[in-house]
Design a protein around this nucleic acid. Structure first.
Length: 366
DNA sequence: TAGTCGTGGAC
DNA sequence: TGTCCAAGACT
């Protein structure tokens, strides 16, 4: 155990710092695996500020594993609306049913069982195991990867597999003492509050005396992500399709790909040398096999996704003929504007819903 | 391995 | 306004 003395001192400083500076967060200090699991999945690539708002609401809607397992997927998607990365909600629902069916409703306690649940990767499995089942497994999220790379003086982009493997190895050596939950929580908190990507606050960091990057004088030269590929812009057209009784036609997206299972105003991407009104007409025909007359452009919505940005050109349309068919969508529905609030829509559609007199969903607004 | 998958907050 | 990024997982 060559690292034990150093580990103990480091852990001790970390634990004391955490006890004094940790933010009070709604999921902090809990040990119910269902609640911890929900928090970890919700916080994947999601800011703490958003989590603080949405986590309590999710638990109020689905207080227990059983309630989540018994819910319809549509209800879960509605609750997840605005959080993004919607496959997380689908996996959450799936996994709840697996635990209900295969584990008698009792959350599995072995790391390998937790890791095998859909939507649970190395990080979430380690975190749940440490917070709820007393283990000491390095849980490497973006914070811990950055803190670890600096602490151990590991060069290279932190999203890089080999770099993360080194952090894992070194952290395993340190985590032979102390409490795994505190290790995990405290390392993440150091990354969030002190060891930030751009300007690490070394003077107030509990790890400074052990930090190789600090020792070398350039902490910000370590633990940085590799550059991201630039985003392109795509033109999209969609239609507010009305018929005589005032109802509007909406479609439910396919279960795979972008925004799986969410509802939307029918439309799609512009092709080369195509007028946007024609894009709108063509996409609606291809998706639903109906004919519409394209009216005036109602609005343009700009929206940024992970890998590209879109300009969404919204046209007023009049329904002409044909019974809608599920060709490029998994479902469709004629609804009154006041019914839209019950269904999950992408955030980019919020302005459209508001414009046509639907009740705007209050998700993620400040 | 590298691309895909959203969104809002911070600056 | 633009850019970066967050308690990653999956294919």
């Amino acid at each position: 155990m060559p690292f034990a003395p150093e580990s103990r001192a480091l852990y001790s400083r970390l634990r004391r710092w955490f006890a004094k500076h940790a933010r009070p967060l709604p999921w902090r200090g809990q040990t119910d695996p269902y609640r911890i699991w929900v928090s970890e999945v919700m916080l994947v690539q999601t800011t703490v500020a958003v989590g603080i708002k949405r986590y309590p609401r999710f638990l109020k809607r689905f207080p227990t594993l059983r309630s989540l397992a018994r819910a319809t997927l549509d209800d879960v998607m509605k609750e997840w609306e605005g959080l993004g990365y919607y496959h997380r909600a689908r996996y959450l629902h799936q996994a709840a049913r697996i635990i209900q069916d295969q584990y008698g409703g009792v959350f599995p306690s072995e790391y390998d069982e937790i890791r095998a649940l859909p939507g649970v990767g190395d990080y979430v499995a380690a975190a749940v195991s440490n917070f709820c089942f007393g283990t000491r497994v390095p849980a490497i999220d973006a914070n811990v990867a950055r803190v670890g790379a600096r602490l151990f003086g590991i060069t290279g982009g932190v999203r890089n597999g080999p770099v993360r493997a080194k952090v894992y190895r070194e952290l395993s050596k340190l985590m032979t003492v102390g409490n795994g939950a505190i290790w995990t929580d405290a390392l993440i908190e150091v990354g969030a509050l002190i060891c930030s990507p751009r300007s690490p606050g070394c003077p107030s960091c509990p790890l400074t005396q052990n930090c190789r990057a600090f020792e070398k004088g350039h902490p910000d030269k370590y633990g940085m992500p590799e550059a991201r590929t630039p985003r392109s812009e795509v033109q999209v057209a969609c239609g507010i399709i009305r018929r005589g009784d005032g109802k509007i036609l909406i479609a439910q997206r396919l279960e795979t790909g972008l925004l799986p299972g969410l509802w939307e105003f029918p439309g799609g991407k512009q092709q080369a040398r195509e007028a946007l009104a024609e894009t709108c007409r063509r996409e609606i025909e291809e998706e639903l096999a109906i004919e519409v007359r394209i009216g005036r452009k109602r609005m343009v919505v700009r929206h940024a996704y992970s890998h590209y940005t879109v300009r969404l050109h919204v046209f007023d349309c009049v329904y002409l003929s044909g019974r809608p068919r599920k060709i490029g969508c998994q479902n469709w529905r004629w609804v009154r504007p006041t019914e839209l609030h019950a269904l999950a829509f992408p955030s980019a559609n919020r302005a459209i819903i508001e414009a046509i007199g639907g009740i705007p969903t209050e998700n993620s607004q400040s």
